[in-house]
């Protein structure tokens, strides 16, 4: 396969970038998208050019590191996969592929296609944890949890924090990510002690990071490589309003740490 790539090149966070065209020649349809970029980078290195900087790690769709906004869609044209799971057979010979970094004020570009997603880490640190007592190890299944609840919590927990929801959202909203992280703990008995403080702290941190507001378009749900559903956002909203408007417990001070 021979392809034309239009890639966003940006020297560093402080420089302005631009789209640059590259030829990708003799690409095997069985290559993954990232392997294709590896091949292009090799030829760039041979020519003495700066290789294209992009994020990647596990290359098996579980780490959430790879990103790339490919032809107007995060992680490319296929449903429910990450970019490392996208193969070149999903494109046709001679196609022009536009590759851009995630675009959000909260995700500043570090270099070329790599963005800084530590905003997500700070949201997690604000409340995405449970308190665990020290002492003897408790029995594994000592707390009964209905199967449907356990499944639903696990579905939320499959979020890999890649940021595709933010990239797909027309408002660059992070609500799908935050709601998955709120839900995965809020639905389980172990997550109850911090349930009301967690949702408030994490939403407060999300707002502070400068993400946009959800308008329920559903683009995030459609682009999520782990198929996290909009139901999570609804659940987060419910918990948030419940915590803010109806709970009488002392409201969390958003300092981040648990007592």
């Amino acid at each position: 396969m021979n392809l034309t790539l239009k890639v966003w090149r940006q020297k560093d966070a402080n420089s302005s970038g631009k789209m640059v065209s590259y030829k990708a020649e003799n690409i095997s349809p069985d290559m993954s998208f990232l392997e294709m970029l590896d091949v292009v980078n090799e030829s760039l290195i041979h020519k003495g050019d700066e290789p294209i900087h992009f994020d990647h790690d596990c290359r098996e769709g579980i780490c959430g590191m790879c990103s790339l906004y490919i032809n107007g869609r995060p992680h490319g044209p296929k449903r429910a996969i990450t970019t490392c799971q996208l193969h070149m057979r999903s494109f046709h010979d001679g196609e022009t592929i536009t590759i851009e970094p995630w675009r959000a004020a909260a995700f500043p570009v570090i270099k070329d296609l790599a963005v800084d997603r530590s905003a997500f880490d700070r949201i997690q640190q604000a409340g995405g944890y449970v308190s665990v007592n020290t002492g003897g190890v408790p029995d594994a299944n000592i707390i009964p949890i209905p199967k449907v609840i356990a499944d639903e919590a696990f579905n939320s927990a499959t979020c890999i924090g890649c940021g595709a929801c933010v990239a797909a959202c027309k408002n660059a909203s992070a609500m799908l990510f935050v709601s998955a992280k709120v839900s995965q703990l809020g639905m389980l008995p172990q997550g109850q002690p911090e349930r009301w403080s967690r949702v408030q702290s994490m939403v407060a941190q999300m707002d502070e990071e400068g993400f946009g507001n959800c308008t329920n378009t559903g683009a995030c749900e459609a682009e999520c490589p782990k198929e996290i559903t909009l139901t999570n956002i609804s659940r987060m909203n419910n918990d948030f309003f419940s915590a803010k408007l109806f709970r009488e417990e002392k409201v969390h001070d958003h300092s981040g740490g648990g007592e």
């Binding site: 107007g72 851009e100 675009r103 004020a105 660059a172 400068g210």
Partner: peptide, 21 residues
């Protein structure tokens, strides 16, 4: 929301979402 994405994408979004939304 506009402030949350200061640099727009070069390509048109193809993410499935209803026109009205």
């Amino acid at each position: 929301n506009k402030k949350s994405r200061p640099v727009a994408y070069a390509s048109q979004s193809k993410s499935p979402a209803s026109w009205s939304s």
